[in-house]
Simulated scan of single mutants.
Amino acid sequence: MKHSKYSRRQAALADELAKRGLGAVMVSDFEHGRDSSLRYLCGQPSDAIFILSAKGTSALIAWDINMASRLGEADHIAAYTDFGRQPQKALAAALKLLDVPKGAKVALPASTPYPDYIDFVHALTDFDLVCEKSGVGTFIQEMRARKDTDEIALYRRIASNTDQLIDMIEKEICAGMLLTETDIALFLEREARRMGAEGMGFETLAAGPERSFGIHAFPTFTNEHFAAEGLSILDFGARFEGYTSDVTMSFVSDSLRTEQKTMVGLVEEAHRIAVEACGPGVPLLSVAKLVDDFFAKAGWTMPHSLGHGIGLDAHEAPTLSMRADPSALLEPGHIVTIEPGLYHPEFGGVRLENDVLITENGAEVLTHSRIVRL
């Protein structure tokens, strides 16, 4: 029996295929081209091809057949090795198995390289293969952006676990138990996994005063001291059942230069302004512009977007950015980060980031990251 969350998603996508005149769609996730939509649609974590017909029937062809049989949700499950690990052969077999009529349009992933597309065309001459940048793949991304009830319930648990990590890390740092960037990153990994996390949602970014001037410090963490004199940034997320949180704490010493105090105050106020501006039907661009204008009036510039969606990927739609389409709106079910930040080559950097759920009536802050004054 199909799990309800996957059957609902597959049914919604099948309806969209029919509306678009498509006979089937292929979603692929392998080392040379990752796509978390595979896991979203059928539960298989990675390394597989998922084919869905407009009739709602599906096939999962996986590199690890044992894993697919345990975690995957599809009408038919087969081993990728049965087709010589050749996606063209696998797709052809799936279309036949799903009884997709000859001449039907079949959507390939928009990321398909041109040489591979030509191979597909040569191998599947009975079908009209389409590969569109703004095709049905965009519809899947939009589905993923609007979290369903199962995902929202999961995110409440993820946020609770992330808040526990936030509290733990603040306590350990303030007690002098974690001194270096590496200490902090490894502590978070250990404690997150103790909670049942699959791992970190992305590589933890811990940048002490000497390295916090960068938006994303490189390397992401070193053996440098953290939370020493000045400004330190800690950006992390924990992944549970495929979904990640994304928060940023800043740690500031009690003896700051005037410019650093100004930066901290501006970032805290920008975060408040942005969260209060969020809600259903609010243009993404307007929220981003509020913060950019706020910083500009104070003589500062934020060198990155205000926030982004999170989910099975650390960066998903929608994006709160000055580049956002003026018609793009926040919608109920969106979970976005709000992460204003300021950076200076001499003074260092400060950022504050939390995860925010857009509801029917407004916005709910799920995580409770903060700027810690040492």
Rank of each mutant, 00 (worst) to 15 (best):
T162G: 11
G281M: 10
H344T: 04
A153T: 06
M322L: 14
D119F: 03
V372G: 06
I51D: 05
V130Q: 14
G33R: 06
G21H: 13
H32N: 06
F295K: 06
G103D: 11
G214P: 07
A270N: 00
A159Y: 08
F202Q: 12
R156W: 14
I173C: 06
G33W: 07
C42I: 01
L285A: 02
S305P: 13
H368N: 07
S369P: 11
L366V: 00
V247H: 02
M1H: 11
E151I: 09
R34P: 02
S369H: 11
H344R: 04
D128L: 10
L357Y: 05
E189Y: 08
G281W: 09
S160F: 03
I273C: 12
H334L: 12
L60T: 03
D325V: 04
E268D: 14
L154I: 02
S253W: 01
A277Y: 08
L290G: 00
P283A: 01
G21D: 13
A92R: 09
A207C: 01
L124K: 05
A24D: 00
T262M: 08
V247S: 02
P45Y: 07
G201T: 05
T57E: 15
E170L: 03
E331F: 01
K261D: 00
L366F: 03
E229N: 06
E276A: 15
L256V: 11
S212H: 07
S245E: 04
S111Q: 13
E151M: 15
A107D: 08
H308Q: 06
R211C: 06
A104Y: 14
I169L: 15
M168G: 07
P87V: 06
F187A: 14
S253M: 05
R211N: 12
L91R: 07
R323Q: 12
D99Y: 00
R211K: 12
A110I: 05
L17A: 05
G199V: 07
R239Q: 14
F120R: 03
R193C: 15
R370Q: 09
Q10K: 07
V336L: 15
G43L: 13
K171C: 04
D246K: 00
V121D: 12
L95D: 08
F187I: 04
T57S: 14
P280Q: 09
Y80M: 13
